[in-house]
Design a protein around this nucleic acid. Sequence first.
DNA 1: AGCACGCCGACT
DNA 2: GTCGGCGTGCTC
Length: 683
Amino acid sequence: MKDNYLYVDVAVPVSIFDTFIYRLDRRKLEKLKDHQLIGRRVLLPFNQTKHIGIIIDLKGEFNPDEADFEIKDIEEIPDKYPIYTQDYIDILRELSEFYLSPIGLTLYYGIPDSLRWKYDKSKNRWDRKGFNNYILYPSVENIDSLHLTKRQREVLEFLISKGEASYEELTELGFSRRVIENLLKKGLIKKENLFFLEENKSRHSIKQDIKPFGNDLIKIGAFLYSSESFEKRLETYINIIANNIYEGKSSLLIFPNVKTLKKVYTYLKGIFGEKVYIYFDGLSSKKKIDTWFNLKRLNGTICLGTFSSIFIPIKNLSLIVLEEEHSNSYKMLRAPRFDIRNVAYKIFQKKKNLTLIYASSVPSVETVYLKAKKVIKSFKGINLNFPKANIFIKNTDYSTLIKELKDIIKERNNVLIITNRRGYSSYLFCEKCNLEIKCARCDIPLKVFKSPKRLECPICKTKYKYIDRCFKCDNSLEERGFGIEKLKENIEKFFPRKDITFETNIIDKEFLLDDFDTVINIFPEIYLYNNDFRSEERFFRSILYPIYKTKKDYFLITKSLDNLPIESLLKEDLNLFYKKELEKRKILGYPPFRQFILLSFEGKNLTKSKVESLFNEWVKKFDIKEIEYEGVFFAFHPYLRENYRYQIILKDFKKKNLLKELFYMATKKSIKLVIDVSPKEIK
DNA sequence: AGCACGCCGACT
DNA sequence: GTCGGCGTGCTC
């Protein structure tokens, strides 16, 4: 009788670090074509509800009679094939230990969102959220003469009044799927995927003029690939990919944003045809699932994706490229708080025969350090070369900014203006009350936007109606500071015919923008105001990156002149920055020399003393002797989304497992603890 | 993470 | 009486 059942370890998506043992009826397994169990998605009863889980181990010799807990049965196996392969389960397990991220949540957030089903207890059914991931638009303006049911009329009226709505929005309002489907069938409304992707229909496979280079180019190893333009780098990748395809090997190219991804996709699709796949969060649900399983099954594919594509268990993976490796978008902001650079390196270590390329025009300090330590090598033996452009530094302040800009632009055309300030004005000020108008949820001054006119919290993005009178004293409010909208308005007024482009940020957009004759970079020192050890690096990148887009003259308008990035720029020596920055970080004990773990405590009525006593209680309970830390201090944004926030930075803390205990202790006290191993920003 | 239970103050 | 906020306990 006992032999009719198997026992398996399941990772359940809850914030618990353990896995859970479930029983599986062998008959359920025998029904499947593919008998592999590891990496499979399963539907489970869990506590008072249900969850999907992922099988990560088989309990061969497990004796259920000896267990001191009730063992529940797996209810269903919904997929034809496992989602993960054994090696990816192993890699993600190791990473979840390293980043102190619960294994269940780690695996859960790796898979396409449309497979992350949730159980709705009140409706007693599985919510397959994401399957209808599209926006609906009305195709007609007037519905008076149409034959419609009451519900259809209501949906159409709603869509016409609002212009558009997501499927989710409509179902939340109580409209059924059937009503929406009927309207679609009648052609009265149309749907569009959240991100519309233009399909390149070309069916031809590899172009004639692309010949594989042979093995002299493809080296196994991890590399830093720097200083060549993206177009040059892409040429190199195409050659490696072509060679890989001939050998049935697959390639993964990761980009920091979707716009870049789409541009490269169209280009590569023209060369490699149906071998090319694209994967990013905004893709339609079906497409994401199809792509996932195709890449897992087929030989010799190419995947272009954003950070989430690193989790796809691609078959015969031989090349991983991380473009713009310095990008902040490679540090995940939700659980698991992985750094994709590190995930890629883990995959490289686990799989033999893999080429891993970290590419960037201005690489991160950490990656340059890895190269210096010979952990990674230099691709093609290229060093950091300084780009060619005439550099002018202007020490100007805001009062003379417009005049300065007019003088520069007067004689020129094809100009790019960069200023990292969104909106029209920086904030609204009441002179009588001496106060800034702030976000009710974050206590941060609201930015003024003109199109459309509104106030917006720069942190939580909550939008407010514009006001011109103080809500306390009714005094008229004053707009202070400037944003790109205001700058644009002022400049275009003087030069209505000039060819001028405005951008807030061009980092990570290297291949979206053409080169400009003249580039003007306004007050990039805003990057220095972040209270973070990587601020100088960000400032360095923000003053250097525009040079790669400059054909002739580069104007840097700044008041922050006495610092290492400016010195390196003036001496035209990139290595100087990396050398001195690394020396500084070594002396001050910053990463990559010391490992940081950032603990962020958040709660509705949380006080500093509550956090202190929790932390001290933990230190005492586990008798922790060797611990070095800074804090408890207020977070850079101490009040965010109606929560108070406090932080502690642990330095080189070895007993990571004890942090799981701290996490549980915090949970018991209703304090949300976010553990960020190797944080990208302290904020 | 998500659910239930129990306590307590506020409001009918 | 009972509604809701939140502290606590539990999850194979």
